[in-house]
Write a protein that binds this DNA or RNA. Structure first.
Lengths: 364, 364
DNA sequence: ATGCTTACCGCAAAGCTTTGCGGCACATGA
DNA sequence: TCATGTGCCGCAAAGCTTTGCGGTAAGCAT
């Protein structure tokens, strides 16, 4: 009996030491810690915190008070293991420093946060190889699904197909894998470009050039169709030399512009597939000593913040980036609920914001 | 005996059903799945995959082959629970769409990926309240520590102190909580601004204005000191009306510029605490009809990509953003290893990139 | 033929949470 | 007084991985 008493005493001392040192070093309190402190079982604490009717109101109140004092929060790892969900969404973007992608990410994050999810961002650096790595890493991290904008190199979709085969939700935005039956949110580039061509015509332009992106990308194809149809609508013939392709980098855009400006019969209007391209074109046109828009009118796409800062301010198509992110997230959660069959396609409207770079006074 | 045989048969059937349907619906294979398939125990599979010498080479080879065929990857939740580490770093930034922050995040991510960590980004939207929420959410998510740039509203540090008290690594970049003993990486704003003042003087400017940020921020104080000392170095008197404070928003910067341009004795040079401010100032100066740099020279800070696109191109101080992110991550991992006492301060050099907005031909 | 070494492998616990089921104790009715 | 009922609470398992320790078999030596 005496021995037992001593053992109990030692245990108390041990417990004390544990609380004063180990507990300090320990970052988070667990149900077990609370249970030990309160002298009840772990399950009772769990039930009390979840307001289970089996636990008496007084005890429930007491447990909740202590839990809040000790800043208890459930361990998401344990919950994840139990519920088989991590509350993580993987997001793959070509890069993160471009305003467009950063803004879409903001939109995704806003919706995700609302739902108690958080996002893990992975950048593909416009490389197919890195994109595949990203998918693998995200799967390893046990994200519940992926929202992606494919890299400009991506021309085969096996890595994304793997997701679909595993029944993991997958949503594309802006650049999509055509032919895959998954939800996506894009803009109506076709119509947008048609209106650009019309706008050029209204301003007296006749030789309208288009600096496009890689041909396999849906956005390139989409906008190219708009370009061709826009020309037809306006009664212009398509001139092959006025359609140049570039790889979406500033350097390549400079080269493409260079090529256009060196034509025997140079264009009097240039449309860039995005604002980054248009900015590069603007620099190059200036370097050649041509006036914008008098000699060459210029229009971009995406309406980055700085479109208003450049001189002349850049006419551009607004891309509802934040909304695009929110929509992508919405589709993601739908997909999570409704399962693999779900594949809604959302097409967002755009708007042509007319600024100085394309308006020729005295025309019309 | 016959009964026992039947039971075994049923178990086999059950097992078959489990493999064919449940296993299909299941996203990831576990050690248990592999063990069942191979007819060995879970621990043997685990040891084989970790190349433990206790397992025979033949069996090890076989297990590794099957594991790779089945695309087995360890469940990070289980590992996290076991090792008490989540491999997640929380990153808090005022916003994500600004090129500066996006670029720093890229730097952090590069180092984190190398170490097998991934980052969880949380935006404070320049709000103290949201910043506190972010800290709480990240702690709840069991990040192993936080890398942060404080919001412009942040003037008390209790939420960050909580991290330090819990011995969670904390690293600041750019905007820091002064007085806290934690690692940080900043730039030498003091010296940078001094060189700006000198540059203005060299170009014949005499009334140099400074649009500063909120006074409690270290970057504001730091650059203000450089401003005052730079003036002294150049033999200029400090004119209080030439120092205006703004809240780092484009709108407020416009107001601040407006205020400066309405002075009886207007400035002939303006320095903005960052490029966003400088861009706003540029627009406003143009709106007033003044020429840059002839009437008013202009210099920014951070050297965003678009500094070269605006007209005139903007003189600015390069901020080594990507490097800053990498350094912040490096400090983070040091802190993780060395414990709470570690508090290295890194100060990165800057460079004044001179462009058209501040160079007056014919001077000197 | 028996005892001992060696080479392999499995049990179980820990990390944390939820929840079905079983169980204890007290109270009430017969 | 005994039996039934009710209100509370704890045990244990599941989710997945690692690892110390114990155990079994084969092989070799005596």
């Amino acid at each position: 009996m005496k021995l037992l008493f001593e053992i109990v005493c030692m245990m108390k001392i041990y417990k004390f030491v544990e609380l004063s040192t180990l507990a300090m070093a320990k970052r988070h309190v667990s149900l077990k810690d609370l249970a030990a402190e309160l002298g009840v079982s772990v399950s009772t604490v769990s039930r009390a915190l979840n307001k289970h009717p089996d636990i008496s109101p007084q005890l429930t109140e007491k447990i909740q008070r202590i839990a809040s004092e000790r800043n208890y929060t459930p361990n998401p790892l344990a919950m994840g293991l139990l519920k088989a969900q991590t509350k993580m969404i993987g997001v793959i973007v070509p890069d993160i420093v471009t305003h467009f992608f950063a803004s879409v990410i903001s939109g995704i994050e806003a919706v995700a946060k609302e739902k108690g999810y958080f996002i893990v961002i992975s950048s593909s650096s416009e490389s197919l190889e890195k994109e595949k790595e990203s998918v693998d890493n995200l799967i390893k991290s046990r994200v519940e699904g992926i929202i992606a904008c494919i890299s400009q190199e991506t021309n085969e979709y096996s890595h994304f197909q793997k997701l679909v085969d595993n029944e993991l939700p997958l949503v594309f935005f802006d650049r999509v894998c055509e032919g895959m039956q998954v939800p996506s949110v894009t803009v109506d580039g076709h119509k947008a470009v048609q209106s650009i061509i019309q706008h050029f015509k209204d301003n007296g332009c006749r030789r309208i050039a288009y600096i496009s992106g890689p041909n396999h990308l849906n956005i390139s194809k989409n906008r190219k169709e708009g370009y061709l149809e826009g020309l037809k609508d306006c009664g212009f013939d398509f001139q092959p030399e006025l359609l140049v392709e570039c790889n979406l980098s500033a350097e390549d855009a400079t080269l493409a512009t260079h090529q256009l400006l060196n034509l025997k019969n140079k264009p009097d209007a240039i449309f860039g597939i995005n604002d980054t391209i248009a900015f590069s074109a603007m620099k190059e046109i200036k370097r050649y000593g041509y006036k914008i828009p008098e000699d060459i009118a210029l229009v971009g796409f995406t309406d980055e913040f700085h479109a208003t800062v450049v001189e002349p301010s850049l006419t551009s198509v607004t891309h509802p980036t934040f909304l695009m992110g929110k929509e992508a997230a919405r589709l993601f959660f739908h997909s999570l609920e409704k399962g693999p069959a779900y594949s809604e396609k959302v097409i967002l409207p755009t708007d042509l914001i007319i600024r100085s770079s394309s308006v020729r006074s005295g025309i019309i």
